[in-house]
Design a protein around this nucleic acid. Structure first.
Length: 477
DNA sequence: TGCCTCTTTGA
DNA sequence: CAAAGAGGC
């Protein structure tokens, strides 16, 4: 009797799940398992109070139900993954252990050790479920990894994405035997004790079927005008797929496949579809960079930045808190930070603007911003978050030049001209005029709203001066 | 996927 | 003197 343990991690779906698919094809019994590793190592997942754990809870709940409909019970365990899997294998006499790969340094180390330790007891195999192609498959002619997105994406597309998405497995699974011991989903404790999560989750639909609804709706309603409308934070023009991609309730292969089919039927959507797919490409690039430069989760890729004169923590602490709480006195920044707090998500252009403000106008290290985003985003993703923050700070791959400093007032006037986004998230400003709402200090109206926490002109000059310190330093490693 | 300053242009 | 372009950070 062959029995496969299928270890679910960030691939919480039934369709296009290569590990599950292979297990069903090759084995008579399937034991799906999810392990809460947060108490064991690792820094793999955000802290326990974070927004993305709430999302994870709901995604797991959905997966558990979907598996049950197929006749399989999802087993929950907690602790060190190696110990949990060793024990589960011994309890069940499993002959196979299958999972889909992860690409963060801690995860790779963990998985490598498990493969070594358990290979004597059973057949251990891993698969690619979360990238269009593997990070090690795309290299420059000299064998080193790309550091520039356009060259990377061009080569990656040129090499091709041979695999089509796999279908959902036929129901029911073969020969499920008596279930091993399991914690309940609630035991994992991903929901907070104080239930702040309910308001946030009103903004989201979780689960595999919902992810495909979100994609279909985006393709039909938004993608034709994606390139122009995606920059305006009041417009619902973005895909909203980021948390689904993070937890794998949809795969990039499924997205690519569906987007290409949509394009074939809607040739007019060419520009929008290509622009959207290049955003999927940026996600691939983020995972690629994380794989090839694992130290960048905590250190700047551009080594000149190790000497960058950020402000000291004791000096910037109160400024950091004002930024986190959306009390900077700059309406667009505060709107973004409050949207993040309320919904677990922030529009991408606003992410760039608040990040530029933190790292440049406030001279607070990008790691502080990355850490806050990791705690508060439902789509918190080590790869994308690391790349994004380093890109803005000017210390990463293909980074924005350091002198590219966003002016939150000008960006607000340009991308939220009517003030719709600001009025929604900073309601105390809603009665200001379309002109003064971007800079409340020019209005005569009395509103309870913070004074701008920094002089934009002076802090911009200060940032440019500090850049001079590292500009001529030794070239990047 | 930046912003500022200075200069030129044309009314 | 508004608008547009060039160049620098």
């Amino acid at each position: 009797m062959s029995t496969a343990i299928v270890w679910f991690r960030q691939d919480l779906r039934l369709a296009d799940n290569p590990a599950l698919h292979a297990a069903i094809e090759q084995c008579e019994q399937i034991i799906p398992v999810f392990i809460d590793e947060t108490s064991g190592n690792s820094g793999l997942l955000p802290s326990e109070s974070s927004a993305s754990h709430v999302w994870l809870h709901h995604a797991l709940n959905n997966l558990q139900q979907r598996l049950l409909e197929k006749g399989a019970t999802l087993i929950f365990r907690r602790g060190d993954a190696l110990e949990c899997l060793q024990q589960l294998q011994q309890e069940t006499g499993a002959t196979h252990l299958y999972w889909n790969r992860r690409y963060d340094p801690v995860g790779i180390g963990c998985d490598t050790a498990i493969k070594q330790q358990l290979s004597d007891a059973c057949e251990v195999r891993s698969f690619n479920a979360s990238l269009l192609s593997e990070p090690w498959a795309v290299l420059k002619k000299d064998g080193t990894p790309y550091r520039v997105f356009t060259a990377f994406w061009k080569m990656k597309r040129q090499l091709g994405f041979p695999e089509l998405p796999l279908p959902e497995p036929a129901s029911p699974f073969k020969g499920i035997k008596q279930n091993p011991e399991s914690l309940s989903l609630d035991d994992l404790g991903y929901l907070p004790q104080i239930r702040w999560d309910k308001g946030m989750m009103e903004y989201w639909k979780t689960g595999e079927l919902a992810a495909h609804d979100v994609l279909e709706n985006f393709l039909n309603e938004q993608v034709p005008d994606y390139k122009t409308k995606r920059d305006f934070p009041a417009s619902p023009a973005t895909s909203q797929l980021s948390p689904h991609l993070h937890f794998g309730t949809i795969s990039p292969r499924q997205i690519l496949n569906r987007a290409e089919a949509f394009l074939a039927e809607n040739p007019g959507a060419e520009t929008g579809v290509q622009c959207f797919l290049s955003e999927v490409g940026w996600r691939e690039f983020a995972y690629y960079l994380l794989y090839h430069f694992p130290a960048t989760t905590s250190e700047s890729l551009d080594k000149r930045f190790t000497a960058f004169p950020w402000r000291d923590p004791e000096e910037y602490q109160t400024d950091l808190i004002r930024w986190q709480q959306g009390q900077t006195g700059f309406p667009l920044i505060d709107a973004g930070m409050r949207q993040l707090w309320a919904t677990g998500w922030m529009h991408n252009r606003v992410r760039m603007i608040v990040a530029s403000f933190l790292t440049k106008n406030l001279l607070i290290p990008w790691q502080e911003g990355e850490s806050w985003f990791r705690d508060t985003l439902v789509d918190a993703d080590l790869a994308s978050n690391t790349m994004g923050w380093q890109w803005v700070a000017g210390c990463g791959a293909d980074a924005a030049p350091y002198f590219r400093i966003f002016n939150p007032v000008l960006q607000s006037e340009k991308f939220d001209k009517s003030g719709e986004y600001i009025r929604h998230w900073v309601p105390e400003l809603r009665n200001l005029t379309d002109k003064t709402i971007h800079q409340p200090w020019t209005s005569d109206a009395k509103v309870a709203y913070p004074t701008a926490m920094t002089d934009l002109k002076a802090s911009r000059v200060r940032a440019l001066e500090r850049f001079g310190v590292i500009k001529n330093a030794t070239s990047p490693a």
